[in-house]
Design a protein around this nucleic acid. Structure first.
Length: 564
RNA sequence: UGUCCUGUAGUGUAAUUGGCAACACGUCUGAUUCUGGAUCAGAAGAGUCCAGGUUCGACCCCUGGCAGGACAACCA
């Protein structure tokens, strides 16, 4: 269940972003009869990441808010890069985020229509077959400050162009031998309008159309027309497509088809995070990470495995807002959103990550008590559980200091702390090995303080968590740190690769001791290990051999005070 | 030596369309607490990229600069 706070936040009367303003204006003026239809158009050539989540929540969210619908459309116009593996993962991730699409479409569904429209353009004298090589086309395009040159094939007759284009489709030419280009203006200040390529020849099997086609439309020629075919009212994309809009409009105008309109917003960037699909692919291929769903990856599946919830991610995309200026969001905002959600819903458990043995000298050998512990102080309905207590415990190494500084509220020689939900405990003796390392603590408890409160009303400064050594279950715990050492991973010294900012210590695997209630945890179950953070069960878990991922730590005021 | 987009606390996003800048994260206090968590109360922090102009009044409109970003794949 979504926590109250998150729910209120999303329903709260909030100021509108520029897209909401536009849509409300369109509805007000009766454009498209008030209809709102958006689309999320991924290319199935990689896994979705948190940046896509922003776009997904935007597109689906806008439609929901204004009584519209959203299509899922795969932009599958390049068979050399795309694969069904990716379409499956994309569908799974969009669903997991909590959205259902109205129609599931593929640009490849429209290949025949697109082809016919190309013929229309040719017949209007607005497209031609070019025999130049890739190299020639590139050099004659000019530069941003310099006009391009017309192709020698630019003025072929309509009949010749139609014939050649049909033969391109029929497979009479090799890859790269010919292309179909729009005839716009080789001197246009916008490079994209310098006779853009519409079709290229690729003799490669397509994951959906098989070997039916050997010519494939380019993005600019396919995308807007696909929007138009679906009668998309608001085609929302990221800023870098802004320069494409004149071309988007050009096709719609020349073809005289449904006038979809494109709007651009600024993509999401985050500190210590790499958002480039290409580079993420590299991390996977070079085995820097375990895969696309490595919990350190910013992919949706990575975040899911890490222990993030769809609610937290949606809340985050609300908080980052929508605008047109470049932005870099603090990773701390994502973590805030996560904690906000998990704090309300994650059951509490006790787990010791870094064990220090404690022997309670005034506790009977072999005795085991079951003590009652609250499952979630934020949610009474979560109930209570029993935790075993005995003579030998483990506590966190960091919770004991032989020579504590002034503000250290935890255990120290002669000091008393509360063992959460158990007893007040005093440390009497520190046992060390020959090298001087602390190996064991001898302590006594106050039997009258059972349950955690002393009848004489005396206070203790600190409460620490613990686990009974005998009943504890030993599990693997994976501690993650940010994947990159630099806030901007691309900001590296001259001649250095972005990979030089990869954090070599982003994964630390340890063995931890958990209270027995955790034995039944299942994949993706989420818990707060008291005072240590939020943890989620990894897919690698096997019966009797659990693996936990640390999703994130708790806010740690002590670390700040002590200067860690 | 081009075209387009964008400049508001450290980071994001607002400002009822011209009425002396708000919210969130972060930071810092204090209260409270059987999690140094959560919660509660409070504080510091920008005068809106710069310079002119219009106006009683400009973050908002105009002019000119400056800065950042995008565009020269048969990628999307």
């Amino acid at each position: 269940m979504l926590s109250e706070n998150l729910r209120n936040e999303s329903l709260e009367e909030k100021s509108k972003n520029f897209l909401e303003e536009i849509i409300e204006e369109d509805i007000r003026t009766g454009k498209h009869a008030g209809r709102v239809l958006t689309r999320f158009p991924p290319e199935p050539n990689g896994y979705l990441h948190i940046g896509h989540a922003k776009s997904i929540c935007l597109n689906f969210g806008l439609a929901q808010r204004y009584g519209g619908k959203t299509n899922l459309r795969f932009d599958d116009t390049n068979p050399t890069k795309e694969d069904v593996e990716y379409v499956d993962s994309i569908k799974e991730d969009v669903h997991w985020l909590g959205f259902d699409w109205a129609g599931e479409y593929y640009a490849s569904d429209y290949f025949e229509q697109l082809y016919e429209w190309a013929i229309v353009l040719i017949k209007k004298g607005l497209a031609y077959v070019d025999d130049q090589t890739q190299e020639e086309i590139r050099t004659t395009r000019g530069t941003v400050n310099q006009a391009g040159k017309d192709s020698p094939w630019r003025n072929r007759s309509v009949d010749e162009n139609v014939d050649l284009f049909k033969r391109m489709r029929n497979g009479e030419f090799k890859d790269g031998e010919k292309v179909l280009r729009a005839k716009v203006d080789m001197a246009h200040p916008n490079m994209l309008l310098r006779d853009p390529i519409l079709y290229r020849i690729i003799h490669t099997e397509h994951h959906r159309t098989g070997d039916k086609w050997c010519i494939y439309p380019m993005y600019d020629y396919a995308h807007g027309q696909s929007d138009s075919i679906e009668k998309i009212t608001h085609s929302i994309c990221t800023l870098e497509f802004d320069v494409h809009r004149p071309l988007y409009d050009w096709f719609i105008e020349k073809l005289e088809i449904f006038p979809s309109h494109q709007y651009e917003f600024a993509r999401l960037n985050m500190t210590y995070t790499m958002m480039s699909k290409r580079k993420l692919l590299q991390l996977v291929q070079e085995k820097v990470v375990m895969g696309w769903d490595d919990p350190r990856m910013p992919t949706i599946c990575g975040l899911r495995r890490r222990g993030y919830t769809p609610e937290a991610i949606r809340f985050f995309t609300e908080k980052v807002g929508i605008a047109k200026r470049d932005n870099v969001i603090d990773l701390s905002l994502l973590e805030f959103c996560l904690r906000e959600d998990l704090n309300r819903r994650a059951p509490r458990r006790m787990a010791v990550l870094n064990p220090l043995k404690v022997v309670i000298t005034n506790y009977p050998d072999g005795q085991v008590e079951q003590l009652e512990a609250v499952n979630n102080p934020e949610d009474e309905s979560a109930g209570k559980r029993l935790v075993p207590f005995s003579k030998e415990l483990y506590i966190e190494q960091e919770d004991f200091m032989e020579n504590p500084p002034k503000k250290f509220f935890r255990l120290a020689p002669g000091q008393e702390v509360r063992l959460r939900y158990a007893y007040f405990m005093r440390c009497n003796e520190v046992i060390k090995d020959s090298a001087g390392n602390i190996t064991e603590l001898r302590c006594t408890i106050d039997p009258a303080s059972k349950g955690g409160n002393s009848p004489d009303g005396r206070k203790v400064q600190g409460t620490i968590h613990w686990v009974s050594a005998q009943q504890a279950i030993k599990t693997e715990v994976r501690l993650f740190d940010r994947l990159f050492t630099k806030a901007n991973p691309d900001d590296v010294a001259e001649g250095e690769d972005w990979k030089s900012s990869i954090n070599p210590d982003s994964l630390k695997v340890i063995e931890a001791y958990l209270e027995p209630a955790l034995a039944e945890a299942k994949s993706l179950d989420k818990f707060q290990f008291e005072r240590m953070g939020y943890f989620s069960v990894d897919y690698d878990s096997k019966p009797g051999k659990l693996v936990f991922n640390r999703t994130t730590t708790l806010k740690d005021t002590w670390a700040k005070i002590s200067g860690q």
